[in-house]
Amino acid sequence: MAKVFIYPATSLILSDLVARFGHQPLGAALSIRERIQTAGVESPPLQITPEDPKRGLKYAAVEVPSGVRGRMAIYGPLIERAEAGVIVTDADFAFGCMGCARTDELILFSLRQRGIPLLELAYPKDEEEGVAFVAAIRRFLAGLKEGGQ
């Protein structure tokens, strides 16, 4: 079972398909759950404390806005753990504020920098594309062994 980072990190479709084909999807929920279930200082809504932008310094320079560094504190450790990645390139719902947009760019950049196997594809727009989408993911995941090789 390989750890597969999914982008968008909140995608239901990618999360389901990766788990369905026998691998572990790494999505935003895992990092959020970790924060929600750790005792500390109350910091609603996502329990992102002032410590997180500091942790984000590992992934983004100090001049980078704290919003991006805070977000990278969520995604960065997942990218580090990832042994492979599945990226959907036309995910309009990943659109957000400038912090989200820059974080998204940094996530994709970091994934490509890591040199792990990546699959990039677009959401299906009809049934025929749906078949190709599912088949492409299955073929990619079937090719991953333990450790993402």
């Binding site: 239901l12 719902f93 049934e127 749906g130 989408f133 599912v134 088949a135």
Partner: peptide, 23 residues
Amino acid sequence: PGYFGHEFEFPILRFISHGLEEL
């Protein structure tokens, strides 16, 4: 906020279901 993502992906699920059935 999270439901906007679900709302976006929900109409695509039928294509995925079709893909899984065909597979």
